[in-house]
Design a protein around this nucleic acid. Structure first.
Lengths: 148, 148
DNA sequence: TATTGTTATACTCTATAACTATA
DNA sequence: TATAGTTATAGAGTATAACAATA
């Protein structure tokens, strides 16, 4: 067994290489961290979300959410307010500037992703989608001891 | 476009989740860093490799190689010697203890990976392999401005 | 002069735990 | 008491540059 042929290694290297192409765009060109980018992404097209929603939907923990919120608030891209129902929770809303920036960044990131994915045939992309979805399910089922 | 459906996000999350299951084994149970693990992997079944080989084959830079070598040498898992041909280069060789440890770790890591992959059908695994290979090629071709 | 391996440094990320305020 | 958000801290990882040895 060679390292290059070892599936886990290939997955890690390919995912990292692909991710790096996109990270460069939102980080270098727009000064957004990965957490800020995910945060904006989730908020841009919804009304408001709580920290809990953001953490769950964006695969972030509460510390990451809190710190990303600090920076996004300082840039006036989001508004942070106590949640009416339960005042321990915070409710986040995108500002117009936040929405505008997100769409600008999204176009650039998406274009970069498409530039890569367009080099694959439709069949290969479909295979990747399918394989990725089933791997996601398998990983989740294996990590969380499945109910029997 | 939802974040959960955004391909780059899904790829990053799935790859990270899968990797984490394996990292735990070689890190928590055997105290190996990712660099040490890759280093041992490359060396276990070959005679000797130079730093340059290890860097290229293991997607590591020269600093990572040098530091991983420090730790592996301290554990007596590898031997480091100047390369006869060009004495600026170092030549690394696995000790018997290194080989033994590698195979022990490999069995455990592989079992963990199989536990996840076995939850996928043969077809889904084939799709994943195919998709991953073509994505690797597409990413490489896109990153390195292709010769025209 | 250029390259290799090493060392140094600063920066970011990650994980964890304490702290506060609300419930 | 339990939970949410914040803040603090230590450790790991990353990127870059300086440096000595060799070519």
């Amino acid at each position: 067994m060679q390292l290059e042929g070892f599936f886990p290694y290939r997955l890690a290297v390919v995912a990292d290489g692909f991710s790096r192409q996109l990270t460069e765009v939102y980080q270098r060109d727009f000064g957004l961290s990965r957490e800020e980018w995910r945060f904006l992404f989730l908020l841009a097209d919804t009304g408001s979300l709580t920290s809990r929603d953001l953490a769950r939907l964006g695969t972030l923990d509460k510390v990451q959410v809190s710190r990303a919120a600090d920076r996004l608030e300082a840039k006036a891209l989001i508004i942070r307010a106590p949640s009416p129902g339960d005042r321990r929770l915070k409710l986040y809303t995108c500002t117009d500037a936040g929405r505008r920036l997100f769409h600008e960044v999204f176009d650039r990131v998406n274009a970069q992703a498409d530039q890569i994915l367009a080099r694959m045939s439709v069949e290969d992309r479909a295979a990747l989608e399918r394989g990725l979805s089933t791997l996601a399910r398998a990983t989740k089922e294996s990590g969380v001891p499945s109910p029997e």
